[in-house]
């Protein structure tokens, strides 16, 4: 998609692929691909909206919309943009501006509570995104209102768009911060299905009255050696030799990127 459109945040997407696949393919989120607007569905908010390219692939794979839609990602006449919008089946909340998702997610969770609905709301935040003040307004609100049907997954890849967050918070310190705001908090390896799934399986019918923050320790650009932990790859499309290496490392061939009509050389 990103190659085809010449646009997209590949490294941010690779960082959270395992989280998204666990949530959707792992059967954590109770959703109906054939009936995306199903009222009792679990809600998902991709607050780090720039990773939508990964979410689209997951949603298409589950049948929310045909794969052919992916071909027109970011293109004239297409429906999928770099950031998700409500006109895409399976997208519950428009996002793209960082910091908003937890507040909107809190509203979804409060709405479920008021209607006595059992669905949960899962919000995927970036670690860099946690620099936004609005996140902490929402964190305080949702714990004060005991929204235990609200789950945050933080894609803790230690990078923001242009820099490392090494001067920021360690995973442990971040975890303590959520706890100080009245949340239950768990740190887990975020690029591992084996580690993620057991934690995510507990999101429904939680006994704790607190909302839950899962700090998923990930690698930005996971799976492509030259993209991993390199700020420059936040918003960059590989070409030429870079692309050849990337495809090889992902066990793909030119044939696998069959929607791509560009030149590999």
């Amino acid at each position: 998609m990103a190659l085809n459109a010449g646009s997209g945040h590949i490294a941010s997407a690779f960082s959270c692929v395992e989280i998204l696949v666990s949530l959707y393919h792992g059967g954590i989120l109770r959703v109906k691909p054939g009936n995306a607007a199903y009222r009792k569905r679990d809600r998902f908010v991709l607050s780090k909206g720039h990773a939508a390219i990964a979410l689209y692939a997951v949603l298409a794979d589950l049948g929310f919309f045909p794969n052919s839609r992916l071909d027109k990602f970011g293109k004239e006449g297409g429906h999928l943009g770099v950031h998700p919008e409500l006109n895409t089946p399976g997208i519950d909340v428009l996002s793209g501006s960082l910091g908003h998702g937890l507040s909107v997610g809190s509203g979804l969770a409060l709405g479920a509570r008021l209607d006595n609905e059992k669905y949960v709301t899962v919000v995927l935040l970036g670690d860099g995104e946690c620099q936004e003040g609005m996140i902490w307004e929402a964190a305080l609100f949702s714990s004060q209102h005991n929204l235990n049907n609200l789950i945050v997954v933080i894609d803790y890849n230690k990078l923001s768009a242009t820099d490392f967050l090494k001067k920021g918070l360690s995973a442990q310190a971040l975890s303590k911060k959520w706890e100080a705001f009245g949340w239950q908090s768990i740190i887990v390896e975020g690029n591992s299905f084996e580690k993620l799934l057991p934690v995510l399986r507990g999101v429904h019918g939680r006994s704790s009255s607190k909302p839950l923050a899962i700090i998923a320790v990930t690698t930005k650009g996971k799976g492509v050696s030259f993209m991993e932990n390199k700020p420059i790859w936040h918003y960059r499309i590989p070409s030429g030799n870079e692309l050849k290496i990337a495809l090889k490392e992902m066990f793909l061939t030119e044939k696998d990127v069959n929607y791509w009509k560009g030149d590999l050389s």
Partner: peptide
């Protein structure tokens, strides 16, 4: 009725989430 607290930006996002549930 919800007093969201002195957090107006959160109130706006919260209202959007609630509206998405049909309120």
């Amino acid at each position: 009725y919800v007093n969201v607290g002195i957090a107006e930006q959160n109130m706006v996002g919260l209202s959007a989430g609630l509206a998405l549930t049909g309120k």
